[in-house]
Simulated scan of single mutants.
Amino acid sequence: MSGTFFGIGVGPGDPELLTLKAVRLIQQADVLAYLVGESGQSQAKQIAVLALEGRIAKHQDIVIPMPMSTRREAANQAYDEGAQAIREALSQGLNVAFLCEGDPLFFGSFTYLMERLAGECSIQVVPGISSIHAAAAELRHPLTMLKESFCVVSGRHTEEQLVEALRQHDSIVIMKAGRARPSILKALYLTERVDDAKYVEYVGRDNQLVENDVRQLKSEQGPYFSLFIVSRKERCTR
């Protein structure tokens, strides 16, 4: 294959948080690729709206429908079909830029396409600002300092794993909190770290929500794009 496959991190939601390199490659790419949800909308494309204003499209986008399901079989089939469409474009000598929310290699959907195309083509990755760093900036809250230990876990971890992380580490970020919010809140109470926690959903977007007192959160499912940042209230700063 003579085309290059680019994984472009577009950041967490604010269109102004794309890097200059990301904007340039989006505008220069022969083909854009991105996931779409069941509504037919692409979060990543919406985030890249400012970069797309200067783009002249010469080829049809590769749209990869992603079912909202916990079944990996459905997701794997979507990635298989998406990788094949990208493969065909690359074989024609076209450069394909995949728009990925956040950072392509940090809980990024690009990873699954890269695995399928590795060894077949030239691959380049443009890092993006993660939701973790965007949330910390919005909260004006350091993620970790000096000798503090730092851990990133997912809401897909078990309650026992969440409790262990909260007890073992000074600073913890719990990603993909959505469906797991009740168990995350329970783990925070069990470890007596509920007062150490802050919550952000849809960071950088118009519907962003910040909650500095997570005791105010209802113990019910939240949106997929949400996270908790937990750090010691008493921190060593010298």
Rank of each mutant, 00 (worst) to 15 (best):
A137M: 06
A48M: 06
E73C: 06
F5S: 13
M66Y: 03
D170S: 15
A51H: 08
P12Y: 08
Q124F: 00
E115S: 10
G155W: 00
F5C: 12
I56M: 05
S131V: 15
V163I: 13
M68A: 05
I26A: 13
C151M: 05
Q161V: 01
L139K: 03
R140A: 11
F6P: 13
T144L: 11
A51I: 03
G3D: 05
G54H: 10
N76F: 12
E73S: 14
Q77T: 11
V210Q: 13
C236T: 14
F6M: 11
R193Y: 01
E53W: 01
I184G: 00
G13Q: 03
E120D: 14
V203M: 14
K147T: 11
R71F: 09
Q124L: 12
Q216S: 07
Y34M: 06
R87P: 01
Y199V: 00
A136S: 14
G9E: 09
L227R: 01
A89D: 05
L185H: 00
M66C: 10
V96E: 02
M68C: 07
V36N: 08
V49C: 09
N76Q: 08
I184C: 02
G93N: 04
R232C: 02
P104R: 04
D30H: 13
G108K: 04
S122G: 02
K45R: 13
Y202R: 08
G54S: 10
V194T: 05
V173T: 04
R232H: 09
S109E: 03
V152A: 00
I26P: 14
L166E: 11
S183E: 10
A57Q: 10
Y34F: 15
V214E: 11
G9C: 09
I8C: 07
A137N: 14
S122M: 02
I47E: 04
L143D: 02
